[in-house]
Computed example of a mutant assay.
Amino acid sequence: MKLLALDTAANLCSVAVLDVESGTMLAAVSEDIGKGHAERLMGVIEQTLRDADAELADIGRIAVSIGPGSFTGVRVGVSTARGFALALKCPVVGISTLQALAYDGARLFSGRPILSIINARRDEVYAQFFGKDGVATSEPMVTSLPLILAELSGRDYVLSGSGAALVNERVEEPFDVATVMPTGSIEAFACLGAVSAGQDEPPKPLYLRGLDVKPQQGFVMQRKVTE
């Protein structure tokens, strides 16, 4: 069975095809596009399928990043994955970016606890703690850097994600860093998707805070009432 993995939660537009039975990564394509995932994703999917010598009809399982990350990017990836799963009548699983970052961290620093941490801007970070066995020891959260620094004090964590630099800028003894990517590698999403249990409901975006943009209430037109 072949698995299609999608990640559009940050600046990358990433797609991979994994042979689940053998564990072989047949193809993986990542483009640093910043924005415009809705316009580019289908082209990257087509290219990855060609590189894997596969067709969309060969896909028997889909994995997709659900965030936290870019609101628009996450929605594009999740809606595309759900649409393909409906058309192909195959299961689709959602993988958080924090979980994928922990997977990458564990591959480089086996047997070490991992803090997945993403720069969320506005003096905040997205974060989640994972134990030495790779199991989450906290819920995904949006929090402040001082609170994270307090939790890390005296502990031997590996940092994984774009928030690692924010932490190491403020400590005397830098922590080991697995990656400074804003999400995990596309290989991480594919491998986690292959071993994840089936989900009762289709994946939904993981939003840890509200939208940055709010309606301009002063420009709302009043509705006319006709008699």
Rank of each mutant, 00 (worst) to 15 (best):
L108I: 07
V225K: 15
Q99W: 06
V125Y: 11
G69L: 03
V220I: 14
V213M: 04
I114E: 05
E46M: 08
V76G: 06
E201F: 08
Y126M: 15
Y157L: 10
G60F: 04
P140Q: 07
G198N: 14
P202H: 07
I186Q: 05
A100Q: 09
N119W: 04
P205D: 08
T143A: 07
V220A: 12
L3F: 01
E151K: 12
D133L: 00
A5L: 01
G131W: 03
I66P: 05
R112Y: 09
S144R: 14
E227S: 15
G77N: 03
G154N: 01
V135S: 10
L101A: 05
A10K: 14
E124N: 09
L98M: 06
E172N: 11
I59F: 06
I114D: 05
M1F: 15
G34H: 05
G193Q: 08
D7A: 01
G94T: 07
V15E: 04
T72C: 01
E173Q: 13
Q99F: 02
K89Q: 08
T143Y: 11
E227R: 13
C191K: 13
S144Q: 10
M141L: 09
I186N: 02
L211K: 11
L56K: 11
L6P: 07
D212F: 01
E201W: 01
T137C: 10
F130G: 04
G43H: 12
L147S: 13
R107G: 00
G67E: 02
D104V: 04
Y207G: 02
N11M: 13
A197Y: 00
L149W: 09
L86W: 03
P113D: 02
G69M: 07
P113W: 00
I118W: 12
